[in-house]
Structure formats: structure tokens, C-alpha cells
């Protein structure tokens, strides 16, 4: 039962994941990169890292990176010209909405130990998941590493969002508007077969009693009587056979109902 539930939950997740992938816009999602905070760097150096990050996202992901001016305009409305610290989904969602973003990217550009490191935080419009990552930057370094980090972050965030949404779908109590005709048909057939089986079994029982009490209703003597008696016995056998077949069919239909019921169990 638990295994079945797990399988069913997994199926639901996959279905949800596929649904969200299908729901991804044919055009693109809006990604807003909030100006990076400098730490151990000058504002100009941080700006360079920020522009590089924006270019990196645009180059490697099928999204629409929004112009910096848009992010700056919103950032200016915050106290201290800094993004507030969010610790819950509602806050993140409100921020994403304020920036009119499908994905909000914020972070800090660090300059410590002679190198530059960019730490970014990423969340989708609903704020349900947060991904954090860092990458070292600089011309002497392998340029693939920042790209791989950013791609992985978006991938993980999308997966996380799908899982979060999928779990919600599984947890929903209401089931979809699926037709119940298979259970109804199978159940009806099972009941009918079992009822028929009972009827034929009763008839067979009556026939057996009539024969044992010599009340077969056969008149005459000799060959005619023997033929009548054998016909009665045969009729009893046929009734018993029909009863057994119908009982078997009823059992099969009943099992079918049980299987369908299990499969469709939420």
C-alpha cells in the first residue's frame, strides 16, 4: 500500500513536472538581476561582476534578462537602497512581484584573498524555493565554472519548484473529474454474475433434490422413462456448471473492481 502510494506520488510529481515544463513560456521567463552588493570590492568592480553575471545568464539560459535600469528603479524605492533580507516565501514572493520578475537573482560580489567570488541567491516568482551558489570569477579562471554554476542553480531551482508544486498536488484532497465507468461496469457485471451463479446453483440444488426423491416428473416406463430421467440429470449438471462459471466470472469482475479501485486511489 505504502509502495503503491509512493509510486503514485512519483507519478504525480512527474506529471506535475511535465505540466510545468509545458507551461514554460514559449517566449521566455523574465529574470531580474538585482545590483550586486560589493564586499571587499569597489562599486565599479562589483558592477563589472554584475554585468558579467547578466551576460552569463542571457548567454546560457533561455530566459529574458531584464535591463539593469528596471532593477535599479525598484531598488531605489527600498530603505538604504538595499534589498531587504527575506526569510520566508511570502517576503520573497512580494519582492519578486515588486521587481515584476519570474526569477529574481540577488547577491554579493566579494573580493577577498586576491580573487573575486560572486555569491548569488535565486528564487522564482512564488518564492517557494531558494537556491544559493558561489563561483569564482576573473579572467585567469576557467570561464565554464561560472556558467556551470549558474545553469545548475536555475536547474535546481526549477526542479525544486516542480517538487514543491508536485507535493502540493499530491496533498490536494479533491480528486480530478475522472469517469468511474470501469468500476461501475465491472461491479455491475460482478454482481450480475454472482446473482446468476446463485440462481443456477439453487436450480441445480432443486434438481438434485427432485432426483434423489424420485420426483423427476418422468412418466411412463422403459426407454422413455430412462431418457426423461437422464435429461433431468443432465439439466442439473448444466445448471451446476453454469452456476460455477458465473461464480468464477463474478469473482473475476470483483477482483477487477478492486484493482481499478486501488489504482485510482488518491
Amino acid at each position: 500500500m505504502r509502495f503503491t502510494f509512493a509510486v503514485l506520488a512519483l507519478l504525480a510529481l512527474l506529471r506535475s513536472s511535465l505540466a510545468s515544463a509545458e507551461a514554460a513560456p514559449a517566449g521566455c521567463e523574465r529574470v531580474v538581476v538585482v545590483p550586486l552588493e560589493p564586499s571587499g570590492l569597489t562599486p565599479d568592480e562589483a558592477l563589472e561582476e554584475e554585468e558579467a553575471l547578466r551576460a552569463l545568464i542571457a548567454r546560457n539560459l533561455s530566459v529574458c534578462v531584464q535591463p539593469r535600469a528596471k532593477a535599479v528603479e525598484v531598488l531605489r524605492t527600498f530603505e538604504g537602497l538595499r534589498l531587504p533580507v527575506c526569510t520566508d516565501a511570502a517576503c520573497r514572493k512580494a519582492l519578486a512581484r515588486k521587481f515584476d520578475a519570474d526569477w529574481l537573482v540577488s547577491g554579493t560580489a566579494y573580493g577577498f584573498g586576491g580573487g573575486h567570488t560572486v555569491a548569488i541567491t535565486l528564487w522564482p516568482a512564488d518564492g517557494n524555493v531558494v537556491q544559493r551558489g558561489t563561483y569564482a570569477s576573473g579572467s585567469a579562471l576557467d570561464e565554464r565554472q561560472p556558467a556551470e554554476t549558474v545553469i545548475a542553480l536555475f536547474h535546481d531551482a526549477r526542479l525544486g519548484r516542480s517538487i514543491a508544486n508536485g507535493v502540493e498536488a499530491v496533498a490536494e484532497p479533491a480528486r480530478p473529474r475522472r469517469s468511474r465507468w470501469p468500476e461501475v461496469a465491472l461491479g455491475t457485471a460482478a454482481v450480475a454474475a454472482l446473482a446468476g451463479g446463485v440462481a443456477f446453483a439453487s436450480a441445480s440444488q432443486l434438481t438434485a433434490e427432485r432426483i434423489s426423491r424420485q420426483r423427476t416428473g418422468c412418466a411412463g416406463q422403459g426407454e422413455a422413462y430412462v431418457r426423461c430421467f437422464e435429461d433431468t440429470v443432465q439439466a442439473g449438471k448444466n445448471q451446476a456448471l453454469a452456476a460455477n462459471v458465473l461464480f468464477g466470472a463474478g469473482a473475476l469482475f470483483g477482483a477487477g473492481v478492486a484493482v481499478v479501485f486501488m489504482v485510482e486511489l488518491p
Partner: peptide, 8 residues
């Protein structure tokens, strides 16, 4: 503390 450059 240095703030990000906010010139668009």
C-alpha cells in the same frame, strides 16, 4: 559601506 552603483 559601499553600495552598488545605481546609475542605470
Amino acid at each position: 559601506a559601499a553600495a552598488p552603483r545605481l546609475e542605470p
